[in-house]
Amino acid sequence: MKIDLNTVKKISHLARLEFNEEGAEKIQKDMTQILDWVEQLNEVDTIGIEPITTMSSEVNVMREDVVGEHLSHEAGLLNAPQRDSDYFRVPKVLE
């Protein structure tokens, strides 16, 4: 599958990534190469095969709904790049 620069732009927005012109061309080339390679899978007959969606053999793991150990407010904010006394701070959402 040939990836064009427009697709790179669309996907990078979805992934919240940015590429400069040179980076976009490189990722376009890499994605095209990798997708061409993974498309070998089309040779495999999968008619009637259910997609596998979980690898654990544990099902419906239940527990009592009781309060356990939890992080304190202070510990939760410990790694915040920017914070005030109560909250994580981020740049303005609405201009």
């Binding site: 999968t46 095969i49 969606t53």
Partner: peptide, 10 residues
């Protein structure tokens, strides 16, 4: 994605 999940099962 779905195709790969099917091949994974196989």
């Amino acid at each position: 994605f779905t195709k790969a999940q099917k091949v994974r099962r196989l």
